[in-house]
Each structure stands twice: as C-alpha cells, then as structure tokens.
C-alpha cells in the first residue's frame, strides 16, 4: 500500500472524531451570534479545537485583539512542541514548501498518529490530513446549519472517539516501556491537580495541558534519558 493511501486510512478515526467535536463547535458558534459561513471559515482556516472555542468566546466582545492573541498563543503553544518532535521523524523529502503547507494540519490527533511512525513521509502525512480536514469542516457546517438534529445519545457516544484513539496510542506503550508508565502517571496526577485543586483549576485548559505535559515529559527525560536509537521506535 502506498504512503498516501496508508495515511488516508490512518486518518479515518480522526475524521470521525472530528465530526462530532466540530459539530458542537458549529452549534456553539451560531448560538454566539456568528453566521454559518463564519463558523465554517473559522474551522477551515484554523483547525484546532480548544483555540477555536476560546476564539469565538473572545469574538463576543468587540475590539479585544490582544486578548485574542494571548489566548491563542497560550492555548496553542503545545503545537510548537509537537512540530519540533515531528521534525525529527520526517524523511528527507519532507522539507521546504511541504512543511509550510502540511504544518498547517499539525493537530493533537494528527501528531499523535504521525508520531507512531518511525519515519514520517510527506505523502503519508498528506494522506493523514485529508479526512480530518473534511471531518472538521463538514462537521462545523452541519452543526451550524442543522443545530441539535443528531440525538444526544449519538453525540455523546461519538465524543469518546478521540479519547479512544489516544488510549490506543498510549496504552500499548505502557507495556513496552517502564519510563513511559512514570511519565503517564505524573501527567495524570498533574492533570487532575489542574482540574480539581481550586486555584490551579482556574488556569485555562490550553495552558494547563502544556504545563502538565511539559513537566511530566521533562521529569521523564531527566530521570530516564533514552538512548538515541530508542527515540525512533
């Protein structure tokens, strides 16, 4: 199977998961007073979940351009780490203009799937982005136009698709590597702390994700540095 096709197939669960998340975004954007085409345009140009939800929140008020910028940078800084991480795995042809174009689609889920590859080729990554992009755009369109047409139960069930994928990536690695167990346990503890401890819980979710993940990974790297060849497994 060629790389593009393999990427396309790997994007199926992401696309499905995105349908439900962006559907919710579409509903919410319209309820915030945006037109359907504005909601779709935001999704097609931005392709991020937390950032877009925060973004339409800022749009409720006129003239808050600095707030928009600050909220986006803090929520999205995790993508910078993902891009650095993936830059280490790309093959020799995945350079120049293709990075400017395909880097646009560096979402949490696409990064997660791509980072499972030992080397990421340009065509695999390109294939991987197709269905998630369609899912994200069409889901927003459907949500904005149709509103609450899907039964609650279906929406509720679809909303765990993304988490199912995350679990499918993390859990097998727990069996392979003790240090990853430690990193995951630290990440878990920090994440719960940032959700339930009063002052910490006020930190916005984007910053909390970045802080927790960076701390957990840094502690792991400090206690259990990996050998150079292991990082490409």
């Amino acid at each position: 199977m060629n790389h593009f096709k393999r990427g396309l197939r790997a994007g199926i669960p992401i696309g499905l998961g995105y349908l439900s998340v962006s559907f919710t975004f579409g509903i919410m954007a319209v309820s915030y007073g945006l037109y359907w085409w504005q909601a779709v345009l935001i999704s097609m140009t931005t392709v991020t979940s937390a950032g877009q939800f925060a973004g339409i929140g800022v749009m409720l008020h006129p003239g808050q351009y600095i707030q928009m910028l600050i909220s986006q940078v803090t929520i999205n800084i995790r993508y910078a780490f993902m891009s650095i991480s993936l830059s280490q795995k790309t093959d020799s042809r995945f350079r120049g203009i293709s990075r400017w174009v395909l880097g646009f689609m560096m979402t949490d889920e696409i990064f997660a799937v791509a980072s499972q590859e030992s080397t990421v080729s340009r065509s695999f990554f390109a294939g991987l982005t197709v269905l998630p992009y369609l899912g994200w755009s069409l889901g927003t369109l459907a949500g904005a136009l149709l509103g609450n047409i899907l039964p609650d139960r279906i929406m509720s069930a679809l909303s765990v698709a993304i988490y199912g994928m995350f679990i499918a990536i993390v859990v097998p690695e727990l069996k392979q590597s003790r240090p990853v167990v430690l990193v995951v346990v630290i990440a878990l503890a920090l994440s719960c702390a940032f959700s339930y401890i009063p002052l910490l819980a006020q930190v916005s979710s984007g910053i909390a994700i970045t802080v927790c993940a960076v701390l957990a990974a840094a502690i792991g790297a400090w206690l259990f540095p990996v050998k150079e060849d292991e990082t490409h497994g």
Partner: peptide, 14 residues
C-alpha cells in the same frame, strides 16, 4: 531527545 520521545504520551494522557 528524551523529552520529545515522552511528550506525545504526556500530552495525550493530560
């Protein structure tokens, strides 16, 4: 390198 190896698992868990 170690940090970058661990970061996906940390992000996904969080």
């Amino acid at each position: 390198l170690s940090f970058l190896y661990y970061i996906p698992y940390a992000v996904l868990t969080v």
